[in-house]
């Protein structure tokens, strides 16, 4: 029994490593069905972004962004400044008006690039996929305060995302929001 189990267990693990990405893709697609299209995720965003994909980054009051410290700056798909919403009780920037993205990480990299480097993203690829540590120059690991640790928290249509940005499957009208979470 154990003589057979040794090679069999190695083969099984190698097969799993090889097929894991395709299984994970299928599972991520299934998982995303549980994320409801939350209409209120578009509240406060430009009306022409209804039904379009949006990426928002919010900065904590203790570490505001140099360029986006007053209200939330709205940036269009051509990088143009569409205005600032100062009624949202937070600061940061949203880039929106996109169609057709399905991969969360691709969308994040393409949309943040439109802010002229102001929202550049730093991430590591680790055991659990892409892990974002820095957005717009703010590395969550450097934050200190009345908490054990801080991280860039990912919300998908206003709900805590089940999956990392690398596994996030997007549909039309999705709003991706990053803000600092703590534990």
């Amino acid at each position: 029994m154990s003589d057979l189990l040794k090679p069999a267990s190695v083969v099984a693990l190698i097969v799993l490593i090889l097929i894991a990405p395709s299984i994970q893709d299928r599972l991520s697609e299934e998982t995303v069905r549980f994320v409801e299209d939350n209409e209120s995720a578009h509240d406060g965003l430009p009306t022409e972004w209804e039904g379009k994909q949006v990426m928002c980054i919010h900065f904590p009051a203790s570490s505001p962004h140099d360029m986006f410290s007053q209200g939330v700056t709205m940036i269009g798909t051509d990088g143009s400044d569409l205005g600032v919403n100062e009624d949202l009780n937070r600061t940061g920037a949203c880039v929106g008006g996109f169609d057709g993205y399905s991969n969360g990480l691709d969308f994040m990299m393409d949309s943040t690039r439109l802010a002229n480097g102001g929202l550049s993203v730093g991430y590591d690829v680790g055991q659990w996929g892409a892990f974002v540590h820095t957005i717009g120059g703010l590395n969550a690991d450097t934050l200190t305060g009345d908490f054990n640790g801080a991280y860039w928290q990912l919300d998908h249509n206003g709900e805590y995302s089940m999956v990392g940005i690398g596994d996030l499957v997007m549909s039309e009208g999705d709003v991706i929001t990053w803000s600092i979470g703590t534990w």
């Binding site: 154990s2 189990l5 040794k6 267990s9 299984i23 599972l27 994320v35 089940m162 999956v163």
Partner: peptide, 25 residues
């Protein structure tokens, strides 16, 4: 959120199972 979370983690569960059998063997 628990069910989608568990569903999404199934690959990692399989890794744990395969790793355990390998270490036992």
């Amino acid at each position: 959120m628990l069910i989608p979370y568990l569903l999404n983690g199934l690959v990692f569960d399989l890794y744990h199972v395969a790793g355990n059998v390998l270490f036992v063997a």
